[in-house]
Nucleic acid binder design. Structure first.
Lengths: 207, 207
DNA sequence: GTCTATACCGCGATAGAC
DNA sequence: GTCTATCGCGGTATAGAC
């Protein structure tokens, strides 16, 4: 996630910029972030930053590309683990929850991108995730046909699930105020994860 | 929702500005929206707009205030209707779903505000919604104690539910790409609503 | 109430010295 | 690779004529 240039002790300036840009874009959005903010966070001047990245847009593009490839890799791993029925669903669910908990900045950027509909880049976000989506639909419908899962609309279930899982992390400043506590501390994250698992289990299984 | 100055045929310039600002802030966010965009949408110049609102910040504040009071009113109505058990939950759920479907621009602004943690205003969003939240927690826990609803963490259930319901509307540009269709057309919205009801019913009831 | 004109600032980006 | 200096643009906001 954080860029390690092989086994150097200090990351390259380029990678420092990518890390700081990720943080700023997640926190304040594309429009709300200035190159000055990022440069200041790294400890350099704006023109020095533009020596490493041709423009704000390409910098954002690189941040987003790294985000997508990191996530894809993790998702592929989780999906590859062999399991069946509810166990499989729980495994993927847990993988997503762990992933999101470890990379909250990614989550917030994704949410902003989904909100804006991908204005900032040519990248078609839903297009990239479409294979995962279609795969999951097929799996869920198979389990429903087999009588393992409760019959629900698989496509809407996935969209609802995506919203249910993502929101806790993307809207954590808001959640803080609702629960009068830091939503992103270890215990609360753990509680949230167990709740989501229980919730989906309860909805999908008649045990 | 849309401002009607008593029963005039054409709304006041001030209300036209509020409507256009709502649209722009929802679509492109606070930072992404310029006063030029709003003024152009109304058909006036930027200085004319600033004759009606002292600054961009106060304009945003007024838009948000109207949003909150509109929603509160609707929510209060829905909660006031007498019902018990699952019927009550379904009633409130449907009220929220209808409300969100009718006011997608509100939803997107709310989501942006939750993401940003209320930077743009002094308004503490979670503080305003806190009474509803605490009320709902009490109700859910009562139903769980009575054995009507499946035992789940009521607070997390509400947060998860909030995410599940809001996301379809806030991220509709993204959903479009997943389902290869306009998420906000009548049929898809109706399908989504029925799905959410079924999903929660399945999770909360053992019928 | 709306306009033109203008002041002022911060932004992204470039040129060129070191 | 980093810096200072600068350009050009678009942003918010104000002044003053109509």
């Amino acid at each position: 996630m954080s860029n390690a240039t092989s086994s150097e002790s200090s990351p390259s300036t380029r990678d420092q910029i990518l890390d700081e840009a990720l943080k700023c874009f997640a926190e304040k959005g594309y429009e709300g972030t200035s190159l000055n903010d990022i440069a200041a966070g790294v400890g350099i001047r704006r023109p020095s930053l533009l020596h490493h990245f041709a423009s704000k847009e390409t910098l954002y593009g690189d941040v987003f590309e790294r985000l997508l490839s990191d996530w894809m890799e993790r998702l592929d791993e989780a999906i590859a683990v062999p399991a069946t029925g509810w166990d499989k669903a729980e495994l993927v669910l847990r993988a997503c929850l762990d992933l999101f908990a470890e990379t909250p900045d990614y989550v917030r950027i994704m949410r902003r991108e989904a909100l804006d509909g991908g204005i900032h880049l040519g990248i078609d976000l839903s297009g990239v995730l479409r294979p995962f989506f279609d795969n999951a639909v097929t799996y869920l419908e198979g389990q429903m046909d087999a009588g393992v899962f409760t019959r629900l609309d698989a496509r809407h279930l996935l969209i609802t699930g995506y919203g249910a899982i993502l929101t806790y992390f993307s809207d954590s400043p808001f959640v803080d105020g609702l629960i009068d506590d830091n939503a992103m501390n270890t215990k609360n994250i753990s509680d949230h994860q167990e709740h989501v698992i229980q919730f989906f289990r309860s909805a999908l299984l008649r045990s």
